[in-house]
Simulated assay, not measured.
Amino acid sequence: MPILIFISLFTLVDFVLLFSIGSQIGLLTTLLLVLVTGFIGLHLIRKEGVSTLARARQRMQAGEIPSQELFTGAALIFGGALLLAPGFLSDALGIACLLPNARQLMFKALAWLGLKNVSGQQQQTRYQQDESSRSNGHEGPIEGEFISRDETARRR
């Protein structure tokens, strides 16, 4: 419920700000500014999204969890949605979500608020995960039998 109240108040303040600035600078200038911020946001989303996807792929190939990249992707989506909404306050927050330094500040603020492990403080590689899963009582070699492909072909 508190988030709904926050969203309602944010939208109300955004529209009041849009209309008050619009009455000062004129309708055409206001529309032009809203469109320009939207295009800037779309350009930043494309640029940052491609680099974030590349970093996430690199980390996954290295066997790491791309948690920072997931946070970045979520911020890009949120920022893009804010840029689609008309208003100067939502545009400012949307562009802030798209700028790397501003995202880092938001990430630190979320961590300060107590949202732990958003960045995966202790990330494990696949090898470390395998080693930690082996220590759950199944130590030592695993016994079993195998048949090589050559033997299978000879038996037929």
Rank of each mutant, 00 (worst) to 15 (best):
G63S: 06
F71W: 14
A74L: 11
F71K: 04
A81L: 15
L70P: 00
L82N: 03
G41T: 02
A81G: 10
E64H: 15
I77E: 06
F39D: 00
A75S: 12
L44F: 08
A81E: 13
G79P: 00
E64V: 06
G41Q: 07
Q68W: 13
G49R: 13
A75E: 08
E69Q: 12
G73Y: 12
K47S: 05
P66S: 10
G73N: 10
H43L: 13
T72I: 04
Q61K: 14
L53C: 03
E48L: 03
R57I: 12
F71R: 06
I77G: 05
Q68C: 07
F71V: 08
T52M: 13
Q58M: 08
L35Y: 14
P66I: 02
G63L: 07
G73V: 03
H43V: 11
G80Q: 09
T37C: 02
I65P: 00
I45C: 03
L35N: 05
V50A: 13
R46L: 15
T52D: 07
R46P: 00
H43F: 15
V50C: 06
L35C: 06
R57P: 02
G49C: 08
R46V: 14
V50F: 12
I40Q: 03
G73R: 10
G41H: 02
G80F: 13
I40P: 04
T72Q: 12
T37V: 03
S67G: 04
Q68Y: 15
G63Y: 14
V50T: 09
F78I: 02
R57D: 12
